[in-house]
Design a protein around this nucleic acid. Sequence first.
DNA 1: TACTAAGATATATTTTACATGTATCTATTG
DNA 2: CAATAGATACATGTAAAATATATCTTAGTA
Lengths: 161, 161
Amino acid sequence: MRLTKFTDYSLRVVIYLARHPDSLATIADIAREYDIPSTHLMKVVHRLAQCGYILTVRGKGGGMRLARTPDLINVGDLVRDTEDNMDIAECFSPDHQSCPMLPACALKSVLVEARKSFLATLDFYRLSDIMGGATPSLVAPLHQAHGTFAPPSPGKKKRTS
Amino acid sequence: MRLTKFTDYSLRVVIYLARHPDSLATIADIAREYDIPSTHLMKVVHRLAQCGYILTVRGKGGGMRLARTPDLINVGDLVRDTEDNMDIAECFSPDHQSCPMLPACALKSVLVEARKSFLATLDFYRLSDIMGGATPSLVAPLHQAHGTFAPPSPGKKKRTS
DNA sequence: TACTAAGATATATTTTACATGTATCTATTG
DNA sequence: CAATAGATACATGTAAAATATATCTTAGTA
Ligand code: SF4
Ligand code: SF4
């Protein structure tokens, strides 16, 4: 069970941008910073722009910046948008419905619930919580059992799916 | 993000065995039932035996059966034992410690917590909960917010890791 | 206008984890 | 000893992901 590098790179990009809010950053900048292939970052950046997390500027002097402030970018949402295969088991795909246990597999229900828990945990965090550096706001300490306190203000917009 | 077929097959095997408690089942039996390659099942069965979930009997008339009753087999444990790569991100592996964000990456902490949530959800279920069929015991209904009730009796032994 | 630097887009290739296959060995029954 | 079961080792195939290449478009600037 792992997330793709595509997703991790996506998160690194927005973290980088959150840390450098005063100027446009280029793909080359970020690729250099993290020592990852710029060719891969191109696709990442494109996706992030499509999904509205960043704004890009073409041409000389161009680059990218966050489309919103870090406290309005939710980690769970970003992972949902960048990880394109969230099919825990074979039967989660509209194709591959050949498992004889369908349609009433109790295991599948459990896996659905587990995935929900995974994403729900991510939903408790915003980019401002994971960008590191000096963030002297009242950020919920990590590793805290998040069921015990109310999520700090906005950061999570309910989505229909 | 997906689990391997190896893990799903492992679960199918124990479900099958739970449903057929009165005789030894062979790899061929189970492969036929689910229409999956017996060659893959061999490895699955071997792992399940190594981890103590099933007992195998070699030779003519041999086969396998559960080593414990279904209410003593925990889904989370079984997934931990069969899914051999639980490295959500690159940095989770002892090798690949090259990400410049280490060692104080706030994102990693969040991912660790999310993985914990995923497995904790699975920990709430036992084989007896997912084996389907007529189980007229007081089983917790699936999809229920499991934070709101006490886990039904045993089924989950705390492990040190 | 030409040049350059940036992202956008499409396609191709490489790599890797996973799945599957084959062959052989060992144990057990009858 | 023959047949049937899992145990074990190794080889191969496959598909998703990662990476690379090439070309196009946009925008600033000399
Ligand atoms: S066993 Fe259940 S969870 Fe696994 S593939 Fe079949 S239907 Fe899906
Ligand atoms: S960015 Fe954080 S979570 Fe991702 S690989 Fe680096 S250290 Fe791990």
